[in-house]
Amino acid sequence: MNIFRFFGDLSHLASIFILIHKITTTRSCRGISFKTQALYVTVFVTRYLDLFTSYVSLYNTVMKIFFIASSCYILYLMRVRYRPTNDPSIDTFRLEYLVGPCVVLALIFNYGYNPTELLWSFSIFLESVAILPQLFMLQRTGEAETITTHYLAALGAYRALYIPNWIYRYFSEGYVDPISVTAGLVQTGLYLDFFYVYFTKVLQGQKFELPA
């Protein structure tokens, strides 16, 4: 554990609390992609299956349970409690374009041909693109509530902080996990456009609006 990793995880936790706060205080999940949230549940469940087989630390276990539980809770909020505020007609990204390639990539790039390793690898690839339906929706509507942009910024910061974490680990442990690093770089890259608008508009007090 190093500070980059720790603050990355804190940022990830913060993003989830911001999202739950947004949905429950506005009593609406408008602007949030159900597909992206469903992908996160898939990511967490497939990756954290090792909860039952390998123990890392209390921190690790508690965080894994939290991520699975909170992502399921968000789906519940969107699908049940605030269902009328969820508009599927603008959440149109085709999931098969994401899931299919991730299955193929996991079959090619993995650390062992057994269910746990294949699912782990699949979850890493899937996480790297899970935000795309959300970004696609943002692109389509051309604007976002400020609280939603804070959610995305916290989520992007979590990914960005994992990069110095890997650099630090390379020098302190002399090992690089090529699957995590490659997928992580791609994932962080997807946020670059968003971050540009976030820093130049939202943090200057303006509304998040994309040029027409």
Partner: peptide, 10 residues
């Protein structure tokens, strides 16, 4: 090594 170092990450 004994596996891949990022398995302890979240």
């Amino acid at each position: 090594g004994s596996g891949h170092s990022s398995k302890d990450e979240l």
